[in-house]
Amino acid sequence: MSVLIEVNQLTKSFGPFKAVDDITFKLNRGEVLGFLGPNGAGKTTTMRMITGFLPATSGSIKVCGNSVHKEPIAVKEKIGYVPEGAPLYGEMTVISFLKFISSIRKIKKEYIEKSINNAIDKLGLEKVLYQQIETLSKGYKRRVGLAQAILHDPDVLILDEPTDGLDPNQKHEVRKLITEMSKSKAIIISTHILEEVDAVCSRAMIIANGKLIVDKTPQALLDTGTNNETLDDVFRTLTIGKK
């Protein structure tokens, strides 16, 4: 199996505050890693460093063999990223936004239409193609955010709370999409929803106060609890130390 993401002793400080503290892990193609943790634990900061948006204070990150620090553009070409809250250019229509991203991603002319159609198809955006993004519902906006991330068929997908704001049916669709894509990619998702980890992730990491405290399969995580404990209970025990 090929290693697509290598994070080594990653640390990020904002002044005296350590948002991410000495995190090390590797992620292979075919794995779906779920970042779990309370708000403010450092999940988003970690993702921002992997995608090259924020510089690390210390430590190193390699994506597909390229150093994020030294070859940022090469790394960014290989990542599809949905930032927290899926920010989008609201004044653009869905189709012009997707065309813009494909042109920036340097997708070859003959593939542009195909890759846009593929993304539209997978995320069910046919109905809203010519609508301004700011007029769309939260669910549609989130799906446009996902569509722009998969346009160039990246090796690595990083999704910060991808199902936030979606209704149960849409959540199901997105999870199905993630599972479908998981074989050929390395995917990191962050989430608050523990059932999501169980549903799509092959690996779960719990981050609290910037530190990596658990790195296991969801099943193994569940097994650390006593008999009748759910993932919620295990999560609470691990992050705040009580039940």
């Binding site: 948006f53 090469a74 960014k76 990223y81 930032p83 920010p87 989008l88 609201g90 991203i101």
Partner: peptide, 14 residues
Amino acid sequence: RNGTIELLMTLPVS
């Protein structure tokens, strides 16, 4: 303000 700077700066552009 809109957070789109994060989208823009994580695209392969300098």
